[in-house]
């Protein structure tokens, strides 16, 4: 190997150590992963950014993360409940989560016998400033739609999340009408109920 080769190789080696360090700590936010990707440390070690999970999702609720989510997260899958919600593939594949099934590196992995009620993608959180129910406009769209009875109405008919029943399926966020009523709810960019990662 020539001296030039050593210099090129050494520079490349150093560059990759640098890229690793910078990417690891620069602007990383915790993200809502598809089912089976909730252990973030394990997930980020294994995800190849191959896009398979996103492609096969019958409900189209997975999107590639943006560079804004952290360079290390860019292109990894995250949930986007504005595009669809996760029924754990109940309708299209009899409840066999396809994203987990196709993941080549098992970055998405569920324990044996996992079901829609044992899996937890995240948990719903209501923004009281923009929720039409909390603005006392009588909206109960999310409560009526939640398949897992994880939303109830309080004594003032305002929706509240029952956290231990919510599995983060995202249907409430998908159906939430707050953004369609921007004149009432203000300039919020997010819907009034959104799913947040567990940690």
């Amino acid at each position: 190997m020539s001296r030039r080769s050593f210099i090129v190789g050494g520079a490349g080696l150093a560059a990759l150590l640098g890229i690793g360090g910078i990417a690891k700590y620069a602007g990383v936010s915790s993200l809502l992963r598809p089912p089976g990707g909730q252990d973030e440390k394990r997930f980020i070690a294994l995800c190849l950014r191959c896009q398979k999970c996103r492609e096969v999702c019958p409900n189209g609720c997975i999107m590639p993360s943006k560079t804004e989510d952290g360079f290390v997260n860019a292109r990894t899958p995250k949930m986007n409940f504005k595009l669809g919600w996760c029924d754990f593939c109940a309708e299209a594949y009899k409840g066999v989560p396809q994203c987990v099934k196709v993941c080549p590196s098992q970055a998405l992995k569920l324990p044996d016998g996992a079901t829609a009620t044992s899996i937890k993608i995240g948990v719903a959180v209501i923004d009281k400033d923009s929720c039409l129910g909390w603005l006392l406009k009588g909206c109960r769209t999310c409560v009526d739609n939640c398949p897992y009875d994880a939303l109830t109405l309080d004594e003032n008919n305002r929706p509240v999340v029952v956290e231990n029943k919510c599995n983060g399926c995202g249907l409430c966020e998908y159906v939430c009408v707050s953004l369609k009523n921007a004149s009432i709810t203000g300039r919020s960019k997010d819907r009034a109920i959104i799913i947040k990662p567990l940690n």
């Binding site: 050494g10 990759l16 690793g20 690891k24 290390v72």
Partner: peptide, 26 residues
């Protein structure tokens, strides 16, 4: 083998230290 091998060593070392596939980013 050529200089690429050292870059490969760098990619794997960085991956071991930081815990994710580093080269995939670039």
């Amino acid at each position: 083998l050529d200089s690429g091998t050292w870059v490969l060593v760098g990619a794997l070392a960085s991956t071991a230290i930081f815990g994710f596939p580093v080269f995939c980013l670039v």
